[in-house]
Each structure stands twice: as C-alpha cells, then as structure tokens.
Design a protein around this nucleic acid. Sequence first.
DNA 1: TCATTTTATCGTAAAAATACGATAATAAAA
DNA 2: TTTTATTATCGTATTTTTACGATAAAATGA
Lengths: 108, 108
Amino acid sequence: MPAARKDAFSPEEQQLAALARALSHPARIAILRELAQHNTCICGEIVSALPLSQSTVSQHLHVLLEAGLIQGTVDGPRSCYCLNTSAINAFGSALGDFFQTLGNQQCC
Amino acid sequence: MPAARKDAFSPEEQQLAALARALSHPARIAILRELAQHNTCICGEIVSALPLSQSTVSQHLHVLLEAGLIQGTVDGPRSCYCLNTSAINAFGSALGDFFQTLGNQQCC
DNA sequence: TCATTTTATCGTAAAAATACGATAATAAAA
DNA sequence: TTTTATTATCGTATTTTTACGATAAAATGA
C-alpha cells in the first residue's frame, strides 16, 4: 500500500469499510460474543476464553474500542468492557441498508 | 502474525470474519455499489469509476470473487462481473442474526 | 495474418495487521 | 509500606494487504 488511497473514497464507504474491518478477525467476533453472553461487564475472563495471549487480546479489544463497538472503563488494575449497544445497532442497520440496496438486483 | 491462529476459532466465527474482511476496504464497497447501480453486468467500467489502477481493481475483484460476493464470467478480453445476490442475501441475514444476538444486551 | 483492446497475472515495494514476550502502571490486599 | 494481581503498552518479528507498472493472454477487428 505505497500510499493510503482510502481517502479517495466517500465517507460512507470509508465508514462502512472501517466497521467491517473491526469485525474482520475471528477473535474479535468471539470477543463480542463473549461480551454478549455475560450481560454484565467482563474484565479479563476474555483472555481465558480466547486461545490468544493477554497482550494480543488487549490489542483486539483496542481495535473494537477504536471502532466504537465496545466501551471500556479502565479503572485501575481491573478494566471492564461491555458492548456499545447503540453503536452496534447503528452499524447493524447501516449494514442492513447497504445489503438492501445490493440484494434487489437481477443480474447474469 | 507469527502463526496463523485463526484456525483456533469456530467455523462460524471464521466465516463471519472472512466475509467482513471482504467488505473491509472502501474500494470493495464501491465496487459492489457500482455493480448494483448497473443492473446489467459490468466489465471494465469499474476501473474508470474507481481512483485506482487497473491491476489493483482486478485484485479487489479477485477478493470479492473469493468471498463469493460477486460472480464473474471470464470470456476472453471482456470479462463480466455481477453481484452474487444469493450469497449477499445469505451474508446479510447471517450478519443480521449476529447483530441481533448482540443488540439485546443491557450493560454498564 | 496482424494489430488492437481488454483483463489477469507477475514481480515488487511499502504499509498495515497479527502475535508474542517483556515491561510498566495501577489499585487493592496483606 | 510492600506485595500481588490485572491490564496496557512497548518492542519486535512475521504475515498479509495494498498498490502499481510491466507483461502475458485471449478474442475481436482490420
């Protein structure tokens, strides 16, 4: 990627792509599932639930945070993450809209 | 990624992540949009519609093909792509199910 | 037949993602 | 205060992604 060409696309396309990228690793799918299973916030049990090292899980959590899909209250040693349901629902409907504009085609 | 850890996750998580990865670049979002606008198949007008070189667009098309989101009939000089609507709809509902399991949480 | 047009592929380079160990930081517990 | 437990960050290595130019392939048109 000798030059970042992403800025040559529309904001909508960039946003949709950025959110899809946040979901583009099975570990992050698994983290979201894990957070959804515990309806209360979770801390480091995520690490035990995943086949990855602590630092790697922390990286994936950071990606999900940056994308806005989860929230985290970093209170000292015991940080606590949870789903950002409003962002998740917004993303879900944005994706739904996108798929709807695609799905009604008759082609080939 | 000193070792491919993706196989340590469930097939569902891998599939969902793989499809999200196919959407994780604005060029590929734009390609899908472009294919949807022309309800007939399109060939190389995609290249003119995108701010990328021909070989790069071809690579993105290959990614979308691999993911099954588009179909391509490579008939000689003039290959023809179109949306794979069934795969797109299947992906859309899979994502919808995933978001539904996430969206009903009350947390933090 | 030969040129032209269109597209895929190859080779390459740079950037980003992924993963881990080691370390730092921070609050609670002893 | 010192220790312990938990988590983020740093440094690094490897892989993958992204991008382009150049080339090859393949059918159409002259």
